[in-house]
């Protein structure tokens, strides 16, 4: 469960997020749509407690993030726009390292399974990450998120720069995870992917959540029109 109650944040007096109220239940994929500077990344950073809110509260799995950062973070998997791995380590070594940091100890077979589940080709498992494309890094990042076995996932422009095939595979994986009971909050510009993947869509502008939509109740063209109307 991902929840925000009147969450607000400003930088140098300029509001970046205003009175955000949001709830993403287990099994839901919530897509936050908005232009650059709309407040999407600020929202994600507040949930991760990389930023301190001015007002309001963020909760992950019912735990207030500000009160117990470690416990809240332990329940979150996070995939940024650009996953950066340690270039001197292979994909499987990166996965083993990040998993070990979160207290997970997996066998090599289990690690390989996470990488395969994330869609990384087996021949890439033991290549150093400096040989990886962005798509391969994103897939390794997904494997890291999967291995964490978190109940909530935060994604910040996860399909940005991915080719359509990789983007599609990624969307399928997200759907699978939500079906397994994960609560997913995804900040994105990708209207098409949001419409296809999300169970709910929120449109943001200037730090405000302007409108919430059910993707099943709106077509691609209407979504685009509505989005452009809100942005104008």
């Amino acid at each position: 469960m991902i929840q925000a109650f009147n969450l607000s944040k400003s930088f140098n007096g300029q509001p970046a997020l205003q009175q955000l109220n949001l709830s993403v239940a287990p099994g839901e994929i919530y897509a936050l749509l908005g232009a650059n500077g709309a407040g999407k990344t600020t929202t994600i950073n507040l949930f991760l407690h990389f930023l301190e809110p001015d007002k309001g509260e963020a909760r992950i799995n019912g735990k207030p993030v500000a009160e117990d950062q470690q416990a809240a973070r332990a329940g979150i998997a996070y995939i940024p726009e650009n996953i950066q791995l340690y270039p001197h380590l292979s994909g499987i070594e990166n996965l083993a390292y990040f998993s070990a940091l979160s207290g997970q100890k997996y066998t090599t077979a289990a690690l390989e399974q996470f990488l395969a589940q994330a869609g990384l080709e087996p021949e890439a498992f033991r290549k150093h990450a400096h040989h990886y494309s962005k798509g391969m890094r994103q897939k390794t990042g997904i494997a890291i998120a999967l291995a964490k076995e978190a109940k909530a996932m935060l994604l910040d422009e996860p399909t940005s720069g991915l080719d359509p095939k990789a983007s599609n595979e990624f969307a399928r994986l997200l759907t699978q995870l939500s079906e397994q009971g994960m609560a997913v909050l995804m900040a994105t510009h990708d209207l098409f992917r949001a419409k296809e993947t999300a169970t709910r869509i929120g449109i943001m502008r200037s730090g405000q959540l302007l409108q919430e939509l059910q993707p099943s109740e709106i077509g691609h063209t209407d979504l685009e029109s509505l989005y452009l109307q809100q942005m104008s």
């Binding site: 991760l48 990389f50 979150i76 996953i83 950066q84 940091l101 990042g141």
Partner: peptide, 13 residues
Amino acid sequence: ETGTLKMLVLQGA
């Protein structure tokens, strides 16, 4: 700068 710090901190470091 690269963003790995976010991942490290999120993993519990």
